[in-house]
């Protein structure tokens, strides 16, 4: 009983926080609303006794959102907190896609004849996860490794294109007069 109530509450929190992402006018709030949504999902995973996956979801998502906030605030073409904004691009298309995906998933959840449970879960799911990673799912590890390395290198090459031989100047070069005084502005551009 308590678990059901808790599950419903968490589900509502997850959905409500997800909606809040698109309703708020602040990049900071949008980011952390998303984080709250993920935390609720993580807590739901805990209810399925997926201890490791649940806790690690919370861990990773809060961390990623904290980092994402940096980028969201930096790269949006306008003030990230004090201007009305819309988080929606291509409203019709995204509505269509979102609705479609929801219908497919919901239909799947309701229509697929789920098999009855065979056997019992392992006493410690984290251990079986570790055994799977190190054992028969080793290929995952082996692919992830070079993938992460490539990510690391390419991300840095993109973010820090000057490399070691040309350190960043402390300040931008003095501006030519052609651009004129900076007007206060929102030059647009996506986020």
């Amino acid at each position: 009983m308590l678990t059901t109530v808790l599950f419903i509450v968490l589900a509502l929190v997850a959905v409500a926080a997800g909606i809040a992402v698109f309703r708020t006018d602040s990049m900071a709030r949008a980011t952390y609303a998303l984080a709250a949504s993920f935390v609720a999902v993580g807590a739901m995973l805990l209810q399925f006794n997926l201890d490791y996956i649940g806790v690690v979801t919370i861990l990773m998502m809060v961390m990623e959102m904290a980092i994402m906030a940096i980028f969201m605030i930096m790269f949006m073409g306008m003030n990230p907190a004090l201007m009305p904004m819309s988080m929606v691009h291509n409203k019709r298309g995204s509505l269509l896609i979102a609705g479609g995906v929801f219908l497919v998933l919901a239909a799947g959840a309701l229509l697929v004849p789920w098999p009855a449970r065979r056997g019992a879960p392992a006493p410690d799911l984290t251990v079986s996860l570790g055994e799977a990673i190190m054992g028969n799912k080793m290929l995952v590890m082996l692919t992830v490794s070079p993938l992460l390395f490539a990510t690391l290198v390419s991300a840095l090459v993109l973010a820090n294109p000057r490399g070691r031989y040309r350190p960043y100047p402390k300040l931008p070069a003095p501006k030519q007069s052609e651009s004129g005084p900076e007007h206060h502005g929102h030059t647009g551009g996506g986020h």
Binding site: F75, P80, A159
Partner: peptide, 14 residues
Amino acid sequence: LSRYHARYYPVTLL
């Protein structure tokens, strides 16, 4: 509250 330049952003990617 503004578009804060966190100059350490390459480290976040790492």
